[in-house]
Structure formats: structure tokens, C-alpha cells
Design a protein around this nucleic acid. Structure first.
Lengths: 331, 331
DNA sequence: CGGTCTCATGAAACCGGTTTCAACCGTAAC
DNA sequence: GTTACGGTTGAAACCGGTTTCATGAGACCG
């Protein structure tokens, strides 16, 4: 590799000025006389000088990088998350270091290691122990996504209580009697909140408590796994509230594959409103959350130099009624 | 923040030794007498000293980080890719910087910027112009994934020509007459190779050339879009070869939603063998590729200090026959 | 014409590690 | 008793920028 990079001092030497002047020209902080400036710029151009991140990071005592930690799951949710975060980081000239290793056992150690390579860290709920989050927050700025904030950190999440509206819609408007919930409440804070809302809706509609949730993950394949537990048994539920669209689609696919009619035989709902939700037949009733905005807000909070008070931002979500719950015409 | 970190010189001062000795103890490169070593270690422990990445990176002239550039698509393929890459990088103590911002005009510029924050870069085929790849390769080591290598870089990909076997299976073993291909050949090198294999199979089976491909992306929703173009028309194909499992599942879902039987009314195949492929009904006939290994191999090539000759590694893939092509019993 | 103020510039310290080089110690060999 | 040697250790240079501080030149004012 021809990595014989030109250094600032070399540029200074060639241009016949001091290193300090080159630095000033390069970053444009302090005024420099036009002629000197031009001369230095020409040398920079000719020799392809680019300031090294090493030196700059050391001198400025900041990495120019933000960390993003999340469970390494697939699906549009996380890919939107990455992109939204990254787009915002680019805006401020920061790089993004991701940690998607779901291995969990060594995640905590890895996160601590990551903590001194970045200026701030976004941690998705349910990936790292609160203890570790606390330690990281002592070193750098931390924002928790899709989860309640710890005492010292800010957090950004989307309103999960819209699940209450959705559940009420199923119970009251459609009159379904046996609802099931697909998702692992202890797995992630988001799912916990949605399960709670599901419970609360039953209570406020004076129905008896629903059955235990079908404890599966958040991937599409988990929806297929849930199908085996839900659809083949005698007392099949007449409506299923899934923790997210991925599992809802997995379940829907399995239901159709079994020859069941949706929503006539079983109604299905999701959460996220990913692109596929509107395209599928029957179109999926779900709750729209602003994933990109969630990620962008998080990144902004991390990059913003002014010390935000550790507050909790909750972005609004919206119930989207389509046909998979029984609304509208025939699918 | 209490980021009043203890520096190496401070440790040296407290322990009453020279900075050099602390460095030696800290990295364990040079022998140090046991008593001094213990003393220094105790100070390090007590004051929670951790070497700064700034200083270390500057002195060692390496970042301890690898870059990963890929189109910001969703789905298990890319999430496996990230995780496989990351797991391998962790092994050698490297961090991973990702760039997932596709569909951005300035991606090339961003890639160049990333190039001087990392020691090596993995670039997924179809994301960056070959011109830019060349520029990056002048600075740092580059490995191209899922694409032919440029002249100067190494590459790692999976065998796409198994699509030829798959296509022949559909044409010859099952006797399908009107095959369709879903995927945009010019979009990614992988899809190009699969389309070529699809064509080649037709030729070698002495069939007339197939119809133009349905040019859609690689997401599940693209499969649903393809469904609108394929399934509603009169001369519906009797078998569809999709560029990947995501689109195949999108198509399958749409087909079932339309009341079509798979494979009786239309056979569907994919590529990847993601978890969902085996779970869905009918189970998806597909081609298994070792995504994780692909990513891990790439990372290893980047981290390995010995200069690999710029070669092209092609990992084997395997045809997986399930029921969506018409094999096996009733779905 | 002298004094003060402003502005551009260079010298040098600094960020936090690593590494080379030389000095120093004690021991073994002659 | 002196020399040679192996093993520890510290001083200092270095990695590549940024920034403070001081200096000198020129402009402006009285």
C-alpha cells in the first residue's frame, strides 16, 4: 500500500510556513492572510494532504464517532434504525460504530470496551444490563432507545400504549372473545410495555385476563413457530395481537399456508407498520411508529454539545386499521 | 461526566517508575521484574487506568477498526452479515464501523471519508463504484464481498451458479414451461450472476430464452410488488425463480393471499435458505449459502497481517429441495 | 513623529501512548 | 580482580495534529 501519507509538518515544510499555519488553513478557524492561505492550499491539493484522524482525535480529545448497540436481529425495524441513526450522524460528521453481537454473555464487556472508542452511545433497550449502562454513562453520554431511561440517562421511545386502543378495538368493536398475544414480555422493554397495554385493555373492558403470552422472539420465523402453538389446537384464538409486524407476517403466512382464512378464521395484528404490512393480503392492521425519527432523535441527542437534561422523549404512534383485523371490505 | 481519566504518565508518577515501564507492564511485551510489575499493576488496578485508544492508535499507527459497507437493506441476510463480520472482528480485538446508508448520492464520498478511520474495509458488491473502491484500496486493505474482485482486491463470494442446477431442476425434473425470474440483474453483482445462471440453464436445456426479469429489489415487499406484475395476468408463469428468499416469501405470501395454491398453481423458489424458508408452508425450495462464513472469511482476510495475494474465494452453496417447487409430498 | 492597537505568524507545549537507545545493575567467566 | 554479558530500567524521541503565547509588522491615532 502506498500509505506514505503526507503529514501536516511536511506540508508546512514544503509551503515554507509553520505547522501551526497549516493547521489553521486546514480547519479555517483563525484568519490567515490570503496569499499564505492560497500557497498552503495549493500544496495541500498537490500532495493530497488529508489530516489524520489519529492526530486530530488525540488533540481534540474526541473520537468523532458514536456507538450503536442493538440486538443483532433482522428485519426492517433494525435496518431503519441503523440508517436513521447513521444519516443523522453523518450530518454532524460523526462515524457510527455498531455492536450487533447478540451473544449476550460477553456483550457487557464488549460494550465497555466500545465505550472508550466513541463520544456517545445509543443503547437499544433489552441488550445490556442496567448495571453496565450505568458504568458506560459515567464515561460518556448515553441515550437509551425504546426503553425507559435509567436514572441518569436520557431515553427515546415510541408510545406503546396505543396497543391498548388496538386491543380495545378487537374486543369491543369487533367483539372477538379469545385474544392471544405473541411475544416475550421479558425479552425487551418494548414488548413488556405492549403486553401490559394488552392486559390493561382487557381489564378496562371488564374481560377476564387473557391467556399467557406465546413466548417467542421478534423475527418472522418466530411468528411461524408461534403458529404451531396457536393454530393447530382446538381452542384456536379468534384474534392474535403480535408484538411486531415481523411475527405477525410470519403468523399470517403460516395461517394462509394452513388454509385458514384471515380475518374470518383468525384476525391478526402487528406493530411497526413496515412496508410489507400494506402490501400483504389481507393488509395488516398495525400500529405505526416513527423508527427513523426515533433513531435520528437519539443521534441528535448524542451529538448535541449542550447538555440536555436527562429526559424521556416519547414519540407518538398511530393505530392503522386495515383488513387483517376484520375492518374494511373483503381482503 | 467524570471523564478525568488516569493517564499512563500519572500511573508512572504514582508508582514511582518511568512511563516506559508502565507501558511495558500494560502491554506485556517486554519482561519487567516481578516486584515492579506487581507495584505497577496495583496502581493500575486501584486507579482504574485504561490505555486511551487515541494515544495507542496514534503510536501504533493503526485504528483497531474495520469498516463494513453495505446497502442498508433489511432481512436476515444482512443481519447475518453484520454479526458474522463483527464476531470475527471481536476475535482480533477490532471494532466495526458500518456504513449502511445506501441510496445516497454521496455514499462514495462517505466511503472515502471512512477509509481513513479504519485499517481495512469490507465492501459489499453493488454499493460503491469500482472507481471509488480503487481509491480506497490505495490507502487501506479492501475485500469485496459477494462480487467479482477488481484487479487489485481480494473478494469473497458464494457460488451463484447453483441457480443453474435449480433452474434445470424446474425445467427438466418438474417439466415447468414458463419460468419467470424476479430480481434486478443490474442492481447487484449477486443477482446478475443468478440471472446469468438462469439464462444458461435455459440454453443448455435447449429451451427458448425466458422472458425479461421482473425488475424489483431484494426486500420482502419487493416480492409483493412482483406478485402484482406476475400473478394477476393471463399467462401466469408456472414457476418463479426469485433472486433471494425475501422476495420469494413476499411472493409466496401474496400468492396465498390471492387464493393460489403453491406449488400446484405456481411454483416458487428462493436463494439464501434463511430460517423462515424451512418453517413456511409450503416449505421453500432454495439454495443455501454460508452467509456467516462469508462475512467471517472477509473479516479474517482484512485482519490477517500477512499479505494475502489478491485472490477470489468462492464458498460452496447447496441446492435445498423442499415442497414449494413441487418436490415431496403435499405441502 | 511616537505610542498603541490589531492582526498574522511562528515557537513550543500538549494530547497519551510506544519504542529505541543507552546506561546501569549484578553475575559469570577468565 | 577485571572483563564480558544478560537482563531491567529510564530518558527522550516520536506518532500527527491543535492551541496557547509571544513576537513583530503594520495601521491608526493623537
Amino acid at each position: 500500500m502506498g500509505n506514505s501519507r503526507v503529514t501536516l509538518r511536511r506540508v508546512a515544510e514544503i509551503a515554507g510556513v509553520s505547522p501551526a499555519t497549516v493547521s489553521r488553513v486546514s480547519r479555517g478557524t483563525t484568519p490567515v492572510s490570503p496569499e499564505v492561505r492560497d500557497r498552503v492550499l495549493r500544496v495541500i491539493e498537490e500532495h493530497g494532504y488529508k489530516p489524520s484522524h489519529f492526530g486530530r482525535a488525540l488533540a481534540e480529545r474526541r473520537h468523532g464517532a458514536l456507538g450503536l448497540v442493538f440486538p443483532g436481529l433482522s428485519g426492517p425495524y433494525f435496518s431503519e434504525l441503523i440508517q436513521g441513526f447513521e444519516a443523522e450522524a453523518l450530518e454532524t460528521g460523526d462515524s457510527v460504530l455498531v455492536l450487533a453481537s447478540h451473544s449476550r454473555a460477553d456483550t457487557d464487556a464488549t460494550v465497555l470496551d466500545l465505550a472508550d472508542r466513541v463520544d456517545g452511545m445509543a443503547i437499544h433497550g433489552g441488550t445490556v444490563s442496567t448495571d453496565t449502562i450505568g458504568k458506560v454513562a459515567q464515561q460518556i453520554r448515553v441515550v437509551v432507545m425504546a426503553s425507559e431511561a435509567g436514572p441518569a440517562q436520557a431515553s427515546v421511545s415510541a408510545a406503546n400504549d396505543t396497543v391498548k386502543d388496538l386491543t380495545r378495538h378487537l374486543l369491543v368493536d369487533h367483539g372477538y372473545r379469545r385474544l392471544a398475544f405473541v411475544g416475550m414480555p421479558d425479552g425487551s422493554p418494548d414488548v413488556t410495555a405492549r403486553w401490559q397495554a394488552f392486559l390493561a385493555a382487557h381489564k378496562s373492558a371488564r374481560r377476564k385476563p387473557p391467556a399467557e403470552p406465546i413466548r417467542v422472539g421478534l423475527q418472522q420465523s418466530d411468528g411461524a413457530i408461534a403458529a404451531e402453538q396457536l393454530l393447530d389446537r382446538d381452542d384456536r384464538p379468534d384474534a392474535v395481537v403480535c408484538a411486531n409486524d415481523e411475527t405477525a407476517l410470519g403468523l399470517l403466512l403460516s395461517a394462509l399456508g394452513r388454509g385458514l382464512r384471515v380475518p374470518q378464521d383468525v384476525a391478526i395484528t402487528g406493530f411497526d407498520d413496515m412496508p410489507m404490512a400494506a402490501l400483504v393480503r389481507p393488509a395488516l392492521t398495525t400500529i405505526r411508529q416513527p423508527i427513523r425519527e426515533l433513531a435520528a432523535t437519539t443521534a441528535r441527542l448524542l451529538a448535541d454539545p449542550l447538555d440536555q437534561p436527562a429526559g424521556d422523549i416519547v414519540l407518538p404512534t398511530e393505530l392503522v386499521l386495515r383488513s387483517s383485523c376484520g375492518c374494511g371490505g373483503v381482503p
